[in-house]
Design a protein around this nucleic acid. Structure first.
Lengths: 252, 252
DNA sequence: GATCATAGTCGTCTGCCTGACGATAAACAC
DNA sequence: GTGTTTATCGTCAGGCAGACGACTATGATC
């Protein structure tokens, strides 16, 4: 017994993705250049329509794979083998958020390790990793001095919400490891926290904290000297998803 | 320049509400009885279609007012004058969640002080406050011994997600005061935490904690003896929304 | 090869917060 | 008055976090 279609207004439903990674000590997000109006030529978050037979999480995972080649992991599953963490973020449905028609967008948040340069439809100039600070500053100037146009639609708000979610979630979950490759050092993990929070952390206290939190890190036995200096132990992400006690973001 | 309507599948978009309150030491949710198929006669969460010119938050506030008479407060605004806290919870869009057609539901979470009995369309027998434990137990028996049918659609999942959100959010925010009337005692606030978390808390340590957290509680100067025993100081919710340090849920 | 710079790891100390719990205070019921 | 209930203050020991000293193991430089 289908509804009478005239009994409710029809909506288009899309998924938009906040894909975050840490590159060169900076928190970066994936941005794609819009090829058609509205906001033609402006940067936007990747996204697309949800298909008729598709769950929201499936649609987000499909878009993520199309844009980055990443496979998505469910939130509950520990991150492994270069897959990305993917979770629902929030839903945006202001009647005027898309000038063409009524579009409700279910935004998702993905956390990925550092990746090779992205390709959007094979065209590298239409997709890039950009520091979130740069994407979020309104009407400012980028690192290269050229003016920065704000993101299309309400994507600046969505990105800001995604960044805030990531910042708070690495406090009490092991999600920071989603930014790291399968094997990583304590120092690399610390640089992730420093980039996401934008603060400097004491290496000694950080080391004590993460190695002392049960289930967070599992030593693999290997060592590496990637960063120079004394070789560091390698770790994998442990089974714990909730950290107890949590990592504490330093006061303002 | 509207989209070609054939370029994407049409969706119906609804808002569903998890309205929580604390009654008689139990965390309760608002449930309404369905008057038509599917799931006719079963209990469900209140909700309805988003209108063509309505934002998602507006739709949720409208539904909340229709069901309870409560006015909604934005998440950032301190709770006052018997308004309820209202925030977006999550969005549910499984293609099969409604057997009639493709419906995407943007669930919202509302926290309200103890209220008089609800009325749904004026009919009291079709709306009630039910303990969440009772609504969530699958195929069990209620307090009166009669069998409990599970909630309609995927509403058990939505309710469970809402309860979990509330449980974790009162840890690090002042949201527990949304369950209290404008003026309340430390003991009343403690009973809110005990009901939501389902644990017993030490009255002395709780008192020290909440009165010592800056910005959480503001004494009004009055006292009350509502609960019997020695008169207690009355407080209002302070301006702080984020508690630092947070309230800690006792270990399992 | 000695020295230096870099990064990692282990300890120590102090202050704060927490949980456990004793003690006192102010109302009501009998 | 005595008992009961709830509120409120205090004390004490253990744990964790921030500040920071010390030592280790590598590569770079002279």
């Amino acid at each position: 017994m289908p509804y009478d279609p005239s009994a409710f207004p029809p909506f288009a439903v899309t998924v938009d993705l906040v894909v975050l990674t840490v590159r060169r000590h900076a928190l970066c997000a994936l941005a794609v250049r819009r090829g058609e109006p509205p906001f033609q030529g402006r940067w936007a978050l990747p996204g697309g329509f949800v298909r008729a037979d598709e769950d929201l999480a499936q649609a987000a995972a499909r878009e993520l794979a199309e844009e980055t080649g990443l496979r998505a992991h469910e939130p509950a599953v520990p991150v492994q083998d270069n897959g990305a963490h993917l979770e629902q973020l929030a839903t945006y449905g202001d009647p005027k958020r898309d000038p063409r028609m009524r579009v409700v967008s279910v935004a998702h948040l993905a956390l990925a390790p550092d990746l090779p340069a992205p390709r959007a439809g094979g065209d590298a100039s239409n997709a890039r990793w950009a520091p979130v600070d740069e994407l979020l500053q309104q009407g400012g100037y980028g690192r290269d001095g050229e003016p920065v146009a704000p993101l299309a639609f309400d994507h600046a708000q969505i990105l800001a919400d995604g960044v805030e979610r990531a910042r708070s979630k690495i406090e009490y979950s092991s999600l920071a490891t989603a930014f790291c490759p399968t094997e990583f050092t304590v120092g690399e993990l610390r640089r992730v926290y420093e980039a996401v929070w934008g603060v400097a952390l004491d290496p000694r206290n950080f080391h004590r904290k993460v190695t002392g939190t049960p289930g967070f890190l599992v030593p693999t036995g290997g060592t590496t000297t990637r960063q120079g200096g004394r070789p560091a132990q390698l770790f994998r992400a442990g089974g714990a998803t909730l950290l107890n006690p949590p990592m504490l973001r330093p006061e303002v």
